[in-house]
């Protein structure tokens, strides 16, 4: 009843506007659901950024460090070191990072992989 009263009071322009608005909302509403996946991978060496790209950019890259070449792999929204000239291969053992705030460091080869983005973690920092 109230709806039909409302409808009757609307001009043609009003009705068109209402539909345009509704359509706009329906089209844009899915945007609100995709969460925090705008993360970027940064590869740094001695404070300089060697590589920066969204985590969605899959591929393999090689970076020269003091000990030699390290190779990183970006795939399925995560990154890991696949080969490294460092003695303990700790950086390879650290596995894969995919979330903002996570990092892999290869201290001997001066390589730092870091994911930048809005962190969903409930902690500011982790002490280890």
């Amino acid at each position: 009843m109230a709806v039909s009263a409302l409808w009757r009071r609307m001009t043609l322009g009003d009705r068109l506007l209402l539909f345009v608005l509704l359509a706009l909302i329906l089209i844009t509403l899915p945007v609100t659901r995709s969460q925090g996946k705008g993360a970027r991978l940064l590869v740094e060496q001695d404070g300089a950024v060697l590589y920066a790209a969204p985590l969605t950019a899959s591929g393999r890259w090689r970076f020269q460090g003091p000990l030699g070449e390290s190779e990183i792999e970006v795939a399925h929204g995560g990154a890991r070191i696949v080969s490294s000239p460092c003695p303990h291969k700790l950086c390879i053992a650290l596995g894969r990072i995919a979330h903002p705030g996570e990092l892999i460091a290869c201290v001997p080869n001066h390589l730092l992989l870091r994911i930048e983005g809005e962190s969903a973690s409930s902690h500011d920092l982790i002490t280890r």
């Binding site: 009071r9 608005l21 706009l24 945007v31």
Partner: peptide, 28 residues
């Protein structure tokens, strides 16, 4: 200044649609 702020926009538009219809009806 965070792009995520714009994620709110569709919800705000929805709220605007509701309140706009209500206020317009009363004003009419």
């Amino acid at each position: 200044r965070h792009p995520d702020l714009w994620r709110l926009y569709p919800w705000l538009l929805l709220a605007a649609l509701v309140s706009g219809l209500l206020n317009g009806f009363v004003a009419d």
